[in-house]
């Protein structure tokens, strides 16, 4: 669910940016011989549709249909009463409202061409009911997985996306800087409130309440005891772009050392050699629709190296003088062999 500000800014996400992305999508569709491209969206997987239209569903689900010719349209399970809201917060040619979005989208495509070649982004992950409804609407539709096509296009971030990620990082940094109060819940409340006041579309705050016991992050329910050293992680969405930032509360100078080592490691990305010697690490980024997908890390058997120019969020557990210190921040992979760099340093006054 999304509880923060969902709005469209034509300054931060101009029509020209979205149109340029569509032009690239259509060119790739022509190369692959597709008559239409389908992109599914819900709370969990909003990033494909938001990248093309700015639309982020706070609830429910929708399918974006990008025809080879003509404006994209959204088939939404949200009711007609929120149509004007969808129009306000996104750039979409038309909106069709139907509880069975697969059926309605299929009918529209069949009306264009009975045996249309339809690429579906993340076809394997499409909800089974929607896939069945697409088949019911168009038994002759040629449905194929268009994930590879989309991944190629989304790999490197454009300037607008980098700006949105930078804003999300700035929100997280300002919010985490507000962490104060008599209890962990008071700190979390302060961070949450500040992030939302700064326009965060969503914020998830996780905590490692006592680093002496465990450095892993959990969602806090109730009133857990706070250790001498602890950490907070803010996962912030701003206009469809997600980042993570970690603030560690420990001895003076230790967090600074961890931040410096994280920055050094990030410089080597997409190679993971900078992370050697860390207790663990994780690199997440958006390839298709999941905002922060695991790409590389200690727990991954197979890495998916982020493309040059990609936005990622990096987390690591770094041993400093025998203490396990979590660190994490968003980063931008360098272009043409250039060093990667953090979008925001995990340092707080």
């Amino acid at each position: 669910m999304r509880r923060g500000l969902i709005s469209r800014s034509v300054v931060e996400l101009p029509d020209a940016v979205l149109e340029a992305r569509l032009v690239r999508v259509r060119a790739a569709m022509r190369t692959d011989g597709l008559d239409a491209l389908l992109v599914y969206t819900n709370n969990t997987r909003p990033a494909g549709v938001s990248w093309l239209t700015g639309f982020v569903p706070y609830w429910s689900e929708a399918l974006l249909v990008v025809p080879a010719d003509g404006a994209p349209y959204l088939v939404a399970a949200l009711s007609f009463r929120v149509r004007s809201w969808i129009e306000c917060v996104s750039r979409i040619g038309d909106i069709l409202h139907h509880p069975r979005i697969g059926l309605r989208a299929g009918q529209q495509i069949v009306a264009m061409r009975k045996d249309a070649a339809v690429g579906v982004v993340d076809f394997d992950g499409l909800p089974a009911g929607i896939a069945a409804d697409l088949r019911e609407a168009g038994p002759d539709l040629r449905l194929t997985d268009a994930s590879a096509l989309f991944v190629r296009l989304r790999g490197a971030a454009d300037p607008a996306e980098i700006a949105l990620a930078s804003k999300a990082a700035a929100i997280a940094q300002a919010a985490l800087a507000q962490a104060g109060g008599p209890s962990l819940n008071a700190m979390i409340a302060a961070v949450e409130r500040h992030a939302r006041l700064l326009g965060a579309e969503e914020i998830y705050i996780a905590a490692a309440p006592d680093l002496a016991r465990d450095a892993r992050f959990i969602r806090i329910e109730g009133a857990p005891a706070l250790g001498r050293h602890f950490a907070l992680r803010a996962t912030v969405a701003y206009k469809g772009t997600w980042i993570r930032l970690v603030r560690t509360f420990c001895e003076p100078g230790v967090a600074e050392q961890a931040a410096a080592r994280l920055a050094e490691a990030v410089a080597f990305l997409p190679s993971d050699r900078g992370f050697m010697g860390f207790e663990n690490f994780l690199v997440e980024g958006c390839r298709m629709a999941q905002p922060l997908e695991a790409l590389m890390g200690s727990r991954l058997h197979t890495s998916i190296a982020p493309q040059p120019g990609a936005l990622v969020s990096v987390q690591a557990l770094i041993s400093i003088d025998g203490t396990s210190v979590p660190a994490g921040a968003p980063a931008l992979i360098g272009l043409d062999g250039a060093a990667g760099s953090l979008l925001a340093g995990p340092l707080f006054d």
């Binding site: 008071a186 949450e192 409130r193 109730g222």
Partner: peptide, 23 residues
């Protein structure tokens, strides 16, 4: 509107309530 929701979410987090659906 979003400033009002920020207050409510903070109120809930301060009381250890991790989730809320609100429109």
């Amino acid at each position: 509107q979003y400033e009002i929701v920020a207050d409510i979410e903070a109120h809930l987090r301060a009381r250890g309530c991790p989730d809320n659906f609100m429109i």
